[in-house]
C-alpha cells in the first residue's frame, strides 16, 4: 500500500478526520504499520507501553487478567484505537489486546501522539469523546455489576 492510499485510509478514521493532509502524510510515513497474525498479543497487561495503536483492519479482544483467570471485557474493530492510557498516564498496560483475526494496526509512538494532540484540537476532542464514551460504558457495567451483586447478596 502506498503512502497516499494509506492517507486516504487514515482519513476515514474519525479521530484523524480533521487533521490536515500533510500532517496525515507525516503520520502515515512515520508510524509503523504492524500486522499481527490471529491469536497474537499486541500488548500484554502489566508491560510498559510507549505507543498507541489504531486498528486499520481486523478485530481484537480486550482481555483483563483477574485472579480467577483472564476475562474478555470488550471487542475492538476497525477504526478503534487502544493503548492510549499507558502513554497518557505513564502506567503499565491496563489490559491485554489479542488479535482475533489478522490485525493490521498503525503504531503511533508517544512523541508523535503528543505532537498530534497538541497541534490538532479536533483530534483531541475525538479522543476525549471516545474515552468519555468508554467511561460511560464502564460506569454502566459497574452499576450493572453492583445490582447483580446486591441481588446475589439479597438472595442469600
Amino acid at each position: 500500500m502506498s503512502l497516499n492510499e494509506e492517507v486516504e485510509l487514515l482519513r476515514q478514521i474519525p479521530m484523524f478526520q480533521k487533521v490536515e493532509q500533510s500532517k496525515l502524510k507525516l503520520l502515515a510515513f512515520t508510524s509503523e504499520r504492524l500486522t499481527f497474525p490471529a491469536g497474537e498479543m499486541v500488548c500484554e497487561q502489566g508491560e510498559p507501553g510507549d505507543s498507541m495503536y489504531v486498528i486499520v483492519q481486523g478485530d481484537a479482544d480486550v482481555i483483563v487478567n483477574l485472579p480467577n483467570g483472564p476475562l474478555t471485557v470488550a471487542q475492538l474493530h476497525k477504526n478503534s484505537f487502544f493503548g492510549e492510557i499507558a502513554i497518557l498516564c505513564d502506567i503499565p498496560r491496563t489490559a491485554t489486546i489479542k488479535a482475533t483475526t489478522e490485525l493490521v494496526t498503525l503504531r503511533i509512538t508517544k512523541d508523535l501522539f503528543y505532537r498530534l494532540v497538541s497541534e490538532f484540537p479536533q483530534m483531541t476532542i475525538e479522543i476525549m469523546r471516545e474515552i468519555a464514551f468508554r467511561l460511560d460504558r464502564t460506569t454502566q457495567d459497574l452499576q450493572q455489576a453492583r445490582n447483580d451483586l446486591n441481588k446475589l447478596q439479597g438472595a442469600d
Partner: peptide, 9 residues
C-alpha cells in the same frame, strides 16, 4: 534476505 517491515515482533 531481509526481515520484513510491518510484521509484529
Amino acid at each position: 534476505g531481509k526481515i520484513a517491515y510491518g510484521q509484529a515482533q
